[in-house]
Amino acid sequence: MIELVSAERCIQCDICVAACPDNVFDAVKDGVPVIARQDDCQTCFLCELFCPVDALYVSPLIDAIEGRSEADLAASGLLGSFRREMGWKNAKPYGTGADLSYRMFESGAIVP
């Protein structure tokens, strides 16, 4: 579930408010978006892809709260880790061509 909107990092662009498929955030006038409906989060990590400054953290736990501190998350390199691995930057994909999934089919054991 979504657990963090970092007030320190957030530039208030509201992209996450628009891009979240489950309408989890509410925009705040002159402020950082709030997690208004945490229960509705589907743990898809996609808001992290769109955030230009790695201000969001989605915990992998779907029905429990992890409660890790922002300092801990930043220190362990987890803020933005999904975005980096996907090759997104400034809400745009740059990693599409680097997808090596085709190796799954190399042995011929699985054919789509």
């Binding site: 990590f45 915990s59 880790s81 680097a98 090596l100 190796r103």
Partner: peptide, 21 residues
Amino acid sequence: PRLQEGFRKGQPNIFVPFDRA
């Protein structure tokens, strides 16, 4: 190992949850 790399570079949303856990 070759496929591990393929999976990681292909489907990060399988492995990011493991990394975080």
